[in-house]
Design a protein around this nucleic acid. Sequence first.
DNA 1: CGAATATTTGAGGCCTATCAAAGTGAGTGG
DNA 2: CCACTCACTTTGATAGGCCTCAAATATTCG
Lengths: 267, 267
Amino acid sequence: MIELPAAYANQSDLHSYWPSRNLRSTGLWRSPFLTKTEQRALERAVTWSKRFDPHKDLITEAERADNLLIVASGWAYRYTCAPDGGRQLTALLVPGDVANLDMLLFERVAYSVRTLTDVTVVALPRKQALALVDEHPGIAHTFTGLAMIENAIASKWMLSLGRRSAHARIAHLLCEIAIRVGIEGENDVIFPFPLRQEQIGDVLGLTNVHVNRTVRQLRKDGLIQLCDRVLTIPDVAALRYVAGFDPSYLHMLRHIDAAARPTADAA
Amino acid sequence: MIELPAAYANQSDLHSYWPSRNLRSTGLWRSPFLTKTEQRALERAVTWSKRFDPHKDLITEAERADNLLIVASGWAYRYTCAPDGGRQLTALLVPGDVANLDMLLFERVAYSVRTLTDVTVVALPRKQALALVDEHPGIAHTFTGLAMIENAIASKWMLSLGRRSAHARIAHLLCEIAIRVGIEGENDVIFPFPLRQEQIGDVLGLTNVHVNRTVRQLRKDGLIQLCDRVLTIPDVAALRYVAGFDPSYLHMLRHIDAAARPTADAA
DNA sequence: CGAATATTTGAGGCCTATCAAAGTGAGTGG
DNA sequence: CCACTCACTTTGATAGGCCTCAAATATTCG
């Protein structure tokens, strides 16, 4: 068993927690649009929260969706299946991500959402979420911004799926996750990584067998270590190089125009 | 040269027009959220419109983006490139689509946008677009809805890229486009299709050579005809079958909850 | 500790890429 | 009206990356 850094030391479940919300670069908690008032309004609108076991569906395709679900802790993923049985993950959800943003406007969603680890979910009924959006511009901007970040991530996934080798796909995914999960630093970066090889394959359009061979190769090349659901990146720059990874697309919310930021704390 | 139906008869440029805006299932013109007042407000906010030649960049990556660009006529696409030169289209833009929605919140975009045909673009400065969003809930919902439809389409593309055969990928793309472009009917559907085989490959993660072989096979099987930039689908159901295509994801805006629709026409 | 679930390894084959070149069509200029 | 060019499509030959099937090993969990 690999030794985790001190930040994780006092946490009972390796896969459900992250060192600090403040480090995360994406997700609800990092929204630059929210005033304090709006944050409180969001928190007050939560009607329930619930804990789910790993590998349970939070949402299943074509089901009615009446609650906005926010992942408060743990990991989950969205996925869709082809008629022939092939499965494709379309998004990875880490704490602060919204599982079904489009339920704000659509009554049914075209995907399923499944937990990867123990997950705590927080729920807002559609009606209240829409009321918040109409009343608080910062909340509206936040949700819109989340949708756009999701789009930016999806674009990168498409580039991986369409034009990158298996090596580069895996490397790129790991680089993305490291940032989304709030990791900083350049050397011997280490963090919990609950995705199984088969699930990595379902993100990247590869078979589990081929993921295994490729991960193994990356490991042999000293680019990563991945065992016991813990990932180590000895040299972030080297991994980014083989991935062709440029992190700027994950930091766009930090570069918004001043015009879009909240200026005053409206009552 | 294939004979086009009467709807196209009086149109000088085959590739720049579509039979009727009203038939389109996605895009700005079909938003169920806009009141008449809001439509007019949108139109008034347009500061300029411009015509572009085919194969010109509207937007180039990492460039500052200060105007929201709406495709009023013609086709365009978003794309990104991998460091090794591989190119991936990440969205297809048909009339009514917004080229750079995320410019509302991000100063720079992580993609380029290029025209496919002659394109007329209509522009709204960010500041005014944001003002409209804050003032008119219907406009805010419209933009958010567009982002979500884009997400739904991207999810399907990911499924194609990751898990479908070349045949199914091409078939699925054609089925999607037929709907987005407002085509209805089940037999001998025919419409202009400006994508070149190399561009089809760049959508679907295939080489132009392989696209050619596969298109040719689909043609031999009687599933499509594609020549002179005109696509004919003799039997929509048959093509959908090989594609594993379910159109519901493109119609979600039609099924929104009543709560999200505009109820009154605010001054 | 046994059953179920993941990872690892091997052999063989197909799908798609790569490289190369010929064919086709539209547009240009003489 | 015909060379000529440029861009796209088509065709062929070859190769490689990834898949499939299958089984052994390792790990997790009750």
